[in-house]
Each structure stands twice: as C-alpha cells, then as structure tokens.
C-alpha cells in the first residue's frame, strides 16, 4: 500500500516536472492531465471514492478548458526563464520553504494513524458514531457537507457563483468594446 502510493507519487512528481519544464504548451497541459489522473487513483487507494469520481470528471473539464484556451493561439512556446539573479533567489527561497516544511511534518501524526484515533474528543468521532442516526445518510461525506458543515457548502456555492460571474464579466467587456472602438485599438498597438 505504502510502496504503491510512493510509486504513484514519484510518477506524479515526474509528470509535474515535465509539465513545468517542457517548451510546448500542449504537451505541458497533457502532463497536467497525467498528474490529475494520478491524484485520482491515489484518492481511490486512500478509500475516498467520492472525491475520486469528482477528481476524474473535474480533470477532464480542466483539460478541455485549458486546451480550448491555448489552442490556435499563434504563440505556444515562450522559451527562456527569468534572469539569473531572480532565479537564484527564488530557488534558494524554495529550498528554505522545503526544509521548514520537512521540519513541520515531524509534528504531524504518523501516516496511517489519523488524529481522531488518538484524540477522543475529535469531531470525527461524533460524525462516524452518530452520523447515521442523526442524519440518516449512509454516505458520511454527504452527511458532513450537507448537514454538519452545510455553511461550508453555502460558501462554496457563493465562491463558485462569484468565479463564474468574474469570468463572464472579464470576457464580455472585451466583446462589447471591440464593436465600438476596434479601429482605435488596432492603431495604437
């Protein structure tokens, strides 16, 4: 189990490195798809079928959106990174964050021993022991997101609504503007 997850995570890290480093945008997007499906398989091994289903479908939609956004643009490959000095500084900062992250992980519980097994007053104990009686739903994840923590879901709906509204506003303003002063916009370029 642990070795399988390790192999899967190595696969995802390799895919992510290729996705970040490759020159062609289309192959980069496809590598992101590989990472996403790897995450989905990992969810399935971690006994989380709900989010495995959601992750597969969301991954497909992300791929479609990204490909539709970048295909048929005349520029797909921008070579070269930033300047040498800023690259060095940012890589040093990343190393510092990595080392501090490893230090933080020492205070976390061991893998395969979650917090609620050792702490008796964790809220998960209530959800697991009384969830079926109190809400009547056999799927505890659904009973949490729609009953115990429904405020979270309400906030999620609000954020999704706002994001869609933002995308609509950003793309629609351009379309209206193009009809009025497209000649001016072309001339000043």
């Amino acid at each position: 189990m642990v070795t399988l997850l390790t192999v899967l995570l190595f696969f995802m890290v390799v895919g992510a490195i290729i996705a970040v480093e490759t020159k062609d945008l289309l192959s980069s997007i496809i590598c992101v798809g590989a990472v996403g499906f790897g995450v989905s398989i990992a969810f399935l091994f971690l006994r989380a079928p709900d989010i495995a289903i959601t992750q597969v479908v969301v991954e497909v939609l992300v791929l479609v959106i990204l490909i539709r956004a970048t295909i048929s643009r005349d520029v797909t490959a921008i070579s070269g990174d930033r300047e040498f000095f800023s690259m060095t500084v940012s890589i040093a900062l990343l190393l510092v964050i990595f080392i501090f992250g490893l230090e933080v992980f020492k205070s976390f519980p061991q893998f395969r021993e979650p917090v609620f097994t050792t702490m008796s007053d964790a809220s998960t104990n209530t959800y697991i022991q009384r969830g079926l009686i109190q809400t009547g739903a056999a799927n505890l994840v659904t009973s949490i997101i729609l009953d115990y923590r429904a405020y979270d879901t309400l906030g999620e709906a609000t954020v999704l609504f706002t994001a869609i509204l933002g995308a609509l506003a950003i793309l629609r303003a351009k379309a209206r503007k193009r009809t009025t002063d497209s000649s001016e916009g072309n001339s000043d370029q």
Partner: peptide, 24 residues
Amino acid sequence: VDPLPQALVLTAIVIGLGVIALMV
C-alpha cells in the same frame, strides 16, 4: 477512514475548477 478531510477536499476541488476557469 476520516470523512472530514474528504468532505473539505470535495468542495475544494469544485472551487478549484471555478478558479481555474477564472484564471484562464
């Protein structure tokens, strides 16, 4: 297994899709 992180991640995935659409 612990259902609480799964419930939080389930909402986070869908929010992530909306945010990715906004960024694109």
